[in-house]
């Protein structure tokens, strides 16, 4: 059902206008000082098109840094508990990378586990993903090691592949994508030859063998010295989990006074020292090596059993952002090759 067209760069502005005129907000990579994140844009000129990858992932559009789950308010002697109005705007995520688009599918799997998460699903249903295939990669990228590629269509509603300086090949992959294209059909032209596209895609060397990795990692579970060695420099912050487009662990925080308050959901990280602290005071993962092992095992081993997929898309953000340079691809390569 894929529908192939072309899109010229000059037509982007018109398309953006049409999307916004239809009441949708556009989130795209924007530079803020030295970092980039997905923020609202009004025109293509505001989009940081040339970055290899944004600092922060687009997951915040469907899984915000902080959101309300319920509110309470005291009225006289009564306590009124209400649901916050869950009316996220119709959103177009523009300029997502194929790895980030694939990450949306992983998040879908996580949040559709029973009971389904209506907060995520409401936002997700109103989000259209327009990915741009990668013509450049850096040393931190490793999508090809986790079964993806710079031209992967997984999770995208529309995939734009740069063909030359002047435009993109546009693959309209889903009904959602089609609806966004139909807002401005005159911006699009007929399809371009497939070979032209493959030539411009980035080359991302495979760093480790994916087949059998989850079993191999499971066999390394008790090799403490491996996990200790790899994690000695880890500082135990939440940067990797927070910049990751897939990580979805969250904390529930109740905030308020006797008069009013709210229950909030916010991001959490398995790297934090107290992540697994029990009410009894026992902490089964009290060492950073145990937490590092958990991170790797969860994403590359347990997720395969639970979700049927690797919970990593090789975007490289964790490696770029980590203050201690815990390069995930390097570590995985070492683990995959460990005797």
């Amino acid at each position: 059902m894929a529908d192939a067209r072309t899109l010229r760069r000059e037509s982007l502005a018109r398309w953006f206008e049409a999307i916004r005129a239809a009441g949708r907000r556009i989130l795209a990579p924007r530079a803020r000082g030295d970092t980039t994140a997905f923020e609202e844009v009004t025109a293509p000129s505001e989009v940081a098109m040339d970055c290899v990858q944004t600092t922060l992932s687009p997951k915040a559009a469907v899984f915000p840094r902080c959101e309300e789950l319920l509110r309470y308010e005291r009225q006289g002697k009564d306590l009124r508990v209400t649901d916050p109005p869950l009316q996220p705007p119709e959103t177009v995520l523009f300029g997502v990378r194929p790895c980030d688009a694939a990450a949306m599918e992983v998040l879908d799997a996580v949040f559709s586990a029973d009971p389904p998460d209506r907060f995520f699903q409401t936002r997700r249903a109103r989000t259209t993903v327009i990915a741009i295939a990668c013509t450049q990669a850096d040393a931190a990228c490793f999508c090809t090691s986790v079964g993806l590629s710079p031209g992967s269509t997984l999770g995208s509603d529309i995939l734009l592949t740069p063909t030359d300086g002047a435009g993109f090949a546009a693959d309209v992959l889903t009904d959602k994508g089609r609806r966004i294209v139909e807002l401005c059909p005159e911006a699009f032209g007929p399809a371009v030859a497939a070979q032209e596209r493959r030539a411009v895609l980035a080359q991302v060397p495979v760093r480790f063998e994916l087949k059998g990795l989850s079993d191999r990692l499971a066999a390394l579970f008790d090799r403490e010295e491996l996990w200790v060695d790899q994690s000695l420099r880890c500082l135990g912050c939440g940067t990797c989990a927070f910049v990751c487009p897939v990580c979805a662990c969250f904390d529930i925080q109740d905030e308020g006074t006797g008069r009013s308050g709210a229950r909030l959901r916010c991001w959490d990280s398995c790297g934090f020292s107290l992540f697994t602290l029990h009410a009894s005071g026992h902490n089964p993962r009290h060492l950073q090596s145990q937490r590092w092992r958990q991170r790797v095992m969860h994403k590359f081993s347990y997720a395969v059993g639970r979700l049927g997929r690797i919970a990593c898309v090789g975007c490289g953000r964790c490696s770029r952002a980590c203050p201690a340079d815990m390069n995930l691809a390097d570590h995985l390569q070492a683990l995959a090759e460990a005797k």
Binding site: L56, C237, G238, F242, W267, F272
Partner: peptide, 12 residues
Amino acid sequence: SRCLKCYACRAA
């Protein structure tokens, strides 16, 4: 407003 509460500042 950009703060994620990742506590990298604290960890470092």
